[in-house]
Amino acid sequence: MRYLIKTIAEIRRASRHQPLSIFGTIITILLAMLLPGLFWLAANNLTAVEKKLKANMTVDVFLVDDTSQAKIEKLRGELLSLEGVSDVIFYSERDALFKIRESFGQDIIQDLDDNPLPASFSLVVDDTVLEPETADSLVAHLSALDQVEEVVFAREILYRFSGITDSIKRFGIVIAVLVILSGIFISANTVRVAITDRREVVEIMQVVGASRTYIMTPFVLLGGLLGLIGTALSAVLLRLIDEYVSNNLVELQFLNLHEIIAFILTGLLLGMLGALLATRKFLKI
């Protein structure tokens, strides 16, 4: 309680004595934290898209013309028993024609008297099959099956997409580390100014037997508060950006509550850490 009062007094003092430094620190942390925030937002949304992409991933197994019903049933059984295949949907030659017509309009291929499209199985697969090696061996296995003409597994797009997502995540982590380090530095610098401004009082405190903790606490909390406010404002701005993009470009999902808390806590911690370093150095301990 006393610490709280002392801290508030110290903060009011600091904002009166060095308003530009306090204001500037908050703004700098706000803007700096925006960068890892945006990366986080991007990574989250790309991961969501990737998940959707994965869920809709199918392997199309085209059959040779005029495969008999019996063979189709036998093949269906074989396919269903494969590891990683959760469902199998059969499209007859007629279905294939309807599918094409649906996407391209009535008149296409209308004039042909003969249906050139092959029958196919569409395999719904789970994540395990999406790994490059298992995917390759599945395709190889399917291609070797009797009655199978061609196997189409359009997974490159997924790989490319995952690649981009991974790079963004990795780059985001690097950015986050850099921003956190500079945040610590900024907080340390501001708190150093604040405690230097209070040098005489700090000396008197030491003379009358104040513990290190007692002297350091208000300054460490000051640093923490700067980080907290800067990052909280950063989160608000991030939310506004998210809304703007959602309304005008693509629908984005925002960070969930836990992530927002983690984001803001990071700001609190980096502010406190910087302040801790500054006060320790000042008190020569």
Partner: peptide, 18 residues
């Protein structure tokens, strides 16, 4: 050291009041 100083009193030439 803080503990020691809580058992000492110190008066300076220049008062050192806050």
């Amino acid at each position: 050291i803080p503990d020691l100083r809580r058992h000492l009193g110190y008066v300076f030439q220049d008062f050192r009041l806050i």
